[in-house]
Amino acid sequence: MKDGIAHTLRALHHGERRLARDLVAVAERHAEEHEVHHVATDLADWSREHAGRLAELAAAEGLRLDDDATEPLSGAGPEGLLLLHDLRTLHLAATENSLHWEMLAQAAQTTRDERLLDLASACHPRTLRQMRWTNTLIKQLSPQLLTSL
């Protein structure tokens, strides 16, 4: 198995396990919100299943996905992995900003705050463009970078 693909499997396994833990924590913290509690619990089960399936596939390829290992694709390593890490970081930051723009726009609509709605309407599309740009680069570069290591 190519090193780049192995790194990505480790990162995804780590991410799925972290997401499962985070979802369980949210479900427990908001147990009184029945929909949040039940959906978060179900989604945590999905992430645990994903992590298990990743571990099975990796094991079949002779790769061990250590739960205690530091997160792969953390910025250290070959230049290609560093670029993918940086693009992922940018994409996640833009995604978070997009959610905040959406929340502000919804609040502006509810309160009929035209200035705030105008601001969100002007800026949010650019944030969506940032997300599309990073996503496009990740799609274009990851096949070559992950299979060339």
Rank of each mutant, 00 (worst) to 15 (best):
G62M: 08
D68K: 11
G80Y: 09
A122G: 09
N97K: 08
E96W: 03
P78K: 08
E16L: 01
T41M: 09
L90F: 02
G75Y: 03
H124W: 13
V24C: 06
R48S: 10
E114G: 03
T70W: 10
A60H: 08
L82V: 14
A25C: 06
C123R: 01
W101V: 01
D42T: 11
R18L: 08
D118R: 10
A60S: 15
A40N: 00
V24Y: 11
E79V: 15
S74P: 01
E114C: 09
D67E: 14
A120L: 05
T70R: 15
E114T: 12
D22K: 04
H91T: 05
P78D: 10
E56K: 11
C123M: 09
H34Q: 15
L81K: 01
V26D: 00
S47E: 14
S74K: 10
V36Q: 07
A60V: 13
E102A: 07
H91R: 05
E35F: 12
D45A: 14
L117K: 04
S98F: 06
A27M: 08
E32L: 13
R88S: 05
D42Y: 15
E71A: 02
E114K: 12
L54F: 07
L83N: 02
H50K: 00
L81M: 12
T41K: 10
L87N: 04
G75L: 08
N97L: 13
D68W: 05
V36E: 00
V39F: 11
P72E: 02
T89C: 01
Q106S: 11
E49W: 14
A108M: 06
D113L: 11
W46L: 15
S47C: 12
R112K: 14
A76T: 15
L104T: 05
H100I: 12
G62W: 07
H30L: 10
A69E: 06
A25P: 05
A93I: 08
W101A: 05
E32D: 15
H38F: 10
G75P: 03
L23F: 07
E28S: 09
A40C: 14
V24L: 09
S47W: 04
A20K: 00
H85A: 05
H124Q: 14
E96K: 11
A31K: 12
P125C: 00
T95W: 03
P72Q: 04
E33Y: 13
A44G: 00
L84Y: 00
T110V: 10
R48T: 08
L54M: 03
T89V: 12
G77Y: 06
V36F: 01
V24A: 04
M103T: 14
H85D: 08
T41D: 08
A51W: 02
E71V: 04
G77S: 12
D66F: 03
A40H: 09
D113R: 02
D68G: 15
P125G: 04
L19N: 08
A51T: 07
A55C: 07
S74T: 07
H38M: 13
R21V: 02
A25F: 11
S47R: 07
Q109A: 13
H38L: 11
L90Y: 02
T111L: 13
D22P: 07
R112M: 13
E33W: 15
R21C: 02
H30E: 10
G52R: 01
T110R: 03
L119R: 06
E33C: 14
A27L: 11
